[in-house]
């Protein structure tokens, strides 16, 4: 130690060495960090999955997960958003079980005829407890998707 302090040349070379190693280490760390940060593979949920939990958990059932992809394979957008009158904004539709049982919203199809009947509560009320109402989106805009 005393030898290093007495010799300015060797001190300088150690600092230079450290600096080289440090910038090198930073490079490697940034590479690894990039791998962790850049999203590779699927995000959580599917694009356009809707969570409905304004009332579900208050009423003692799981939140509803509505998958757009599943319905889109079977129905065009216009069926729900024109014929059934679903507003295109999460939270804009006052959906409750009374309305559904009355044949409105989901209740227009989920009768056991077009789609499974209302006795299969858990197929729709299938979400993780604590989820907030919203739509899962892939874009990071300030638009309708905010998951």
């Amino acid at each position: 130690m005393s030898n290093l302090q007495n010799n300015p040349n060797s001190t300088r070379s150690i600092i230079e060495g450290l600096q080289t190693n440090r910038s090198f280490g930073v490079l490697i760390l940034s590479l690894l960090a990039l791998l962790l940060v850049v999203p590779i593979g699927p995000a959580q949920g599917e694009y356009a999955d809707v969570v409905l939990n304004e009332q579900a958990e208050k009423e003692g059932v799981r939140p509803v997960i509505y998958p757009h992809w599943f319905h889109r394979i079977r129905f065009r957008c216009k069926v729900c958003h024109s014929e059934l009158g679903f507003e295109m904004r999460v939270g804009a539709n006052k959906i409750d079980m009374a309305a559904i049982t009355d044949g409105k919203f989901c209740g227009a199809c989920h009768t056991g005829d077009v789609a499974w009947g209302l006795e299969f509560c858990d197929r729709c009320h299938s979400g993780l407890p604590g989820l907030k109402t919203g739509i899962k989106s892939g874009s990071k805009s300030g638009g309708p998707g905010f998951y």
Binding site: Q44, G45, E46, F70, I73, D122, R123, S126, P129
Partner: peptide, 21 residues
Amino acid sequence: DGLHDPDGPAISELQNPAEAM
């Protein structure tokens, strides 16, 4: 998927995205 409850009683009755798409 981080949205569905894996312990939900009807989870096995639902179609998975990969199966459909």
